[in-house]
Design a protein around this nucleic acid. Structure first.
Lengths: 210, 210
DNA sequence: AAGCGTATCTTGACGCTGTCAAGACAGGAA
DNA sequence: TTCCTGTCTTGACAGCGTCAAGATACGCTT
């Protein structure tokens, strides 16, 4: 009989992989990505230093698995931030922007992990991560594009590119905050509000339809 | 008599601080920020492991000094990217954007260092760095603001905030490229072109003056 | 020119990291 | 039962940043 509730001190942990991921998420949230070492992680989970290597090829692989969870959450957030039908377009954009910033600022270290070079630059990301991340990107772009084509863009503008640009703006704002470059959060919110306002203004350039 | 030309193997290096910074810049460019360790740096400079500690309090302090150089270059670039008088506003924006992207993409690792959390988040940045960096930020914002007020923004828009938003967009694009998330450079240039185009469109919303 | 203070540089050591190799243990299949 | 295989452990190695103590030589004072 398996005792899933409390793993006291048995040789085979039972579900070490999940336990590691959970513990890693907590360590990440509490002390940041720099403090997330395999040895500390193993110690906290009550297991030897090299035990994680039987469930993850690398430290990099573990981080990828952790980030994968994050992208699933992000994708879910994008789904939830849909418009109530008949809502104003400007309000919809504002709502979307707020949700994105919230996602990043509520879990700064997770965002840093998901979009940091630790995962993407050094050593190729896992296939699983690549897939879920790109899915979230496409999902975001589609949502924004949908908002845009319901209004009318200036001639020659491609909704996809505009959506990508908006994503870059949001990502840039988040990074500036999270990396500690731009420290005043109130300022940042004004900046993002201004960006949304510009966007709305440009959408009114041509004929606007309800 | 001092022999500044070749430092063969004397006990006192002469100008170790500069030599370290130069070597560090090269190591950074060649192998990236992850490969930039004090020990390798010291070895390359032909000096013992702890010698750098007599010129920099920390590894962090050395990185700050290196980044300071980078921000001076950035500031210089902003100065050079000024408009020829009488130039079109849209052309001016495009020119500015191109220069910024070029700056980042030509020296990716330097940009990563300058705007990375390694410097800003972990341990406070040097006073010198803080000053030169904020100067560059203000310089950038002023240049863009100047472009904007020469045209006319929609009612209620504040040029400074718009300038900051444009910076966030550029920074976001650079980060997405440099961190390896968005890999297609041609795509990114289209996105940035689209962003500029939107900006120009919104500037035409109210009355445009030459 | 001599002496000395001090800035500079060196070796040794400590604890931390990621990772490999080899062995110990347990659970499932034959 | 026997044995294979997946899981976990201890031992070890190289590399990292950094501190402490000692060696060296430059440059100012006399």
């Amino acid at each position: 009989m398996k005792n899933e509730v409390q793993p006291p001190a048995r040789y085979h942990h039972g579900d070490l992989r999940s336990a590691l991921l959970a513990q890693a998420a907590e360590l990440l949230r509490q002390e940041g990505i720099e403090a997330l070492s395999l040895r500390r992680l193993a110690e906290r989970t009550g297991v030897s230093r090299t035990a994680p290597y039987h469930h993850f090829k690398d430290k990099h692989a573990l981080l990828c698995a952790l980030a994968t969870e994050g992208f699933r959450q992000l994708d879910e957030m994008i789904t939830e931030a849909r418009l109530a039908p008949g809502t104003d377009l400007a309000a919809g954009l504002r709502r979307f922007v707020r949700a994105y910033l919230r996602f990043a600022l509520d879990n700064p270290e997770q965002y840093e992990l998901m979009f940091g070079r630790a995962i993407w630059k050094n050593g190729q990301p896992t296939d699983e991560l690549r897939e879920v991340a790109y899915h979230a990107f496409r999902h975001y772009a589609e949502r924004i594009s949908a908002l845009l084509v319901s209004a009318s863009l200036p001639r020659g503008s491609r909704p996809l590119r505009v959506a990508q640009a908006s994503w870059a703006t949001l990502h840039g704002l988040c990074k500036l905050m999270l990396d500690g470059i731009y420290v005043d959060q109130a300022d940042m919110e004004e900046v993002s509000a201004e960006a949304v306002q510009l966007m709305v203004a440009v959408l009114g350039t041509s004929t606007t339809q309800t």
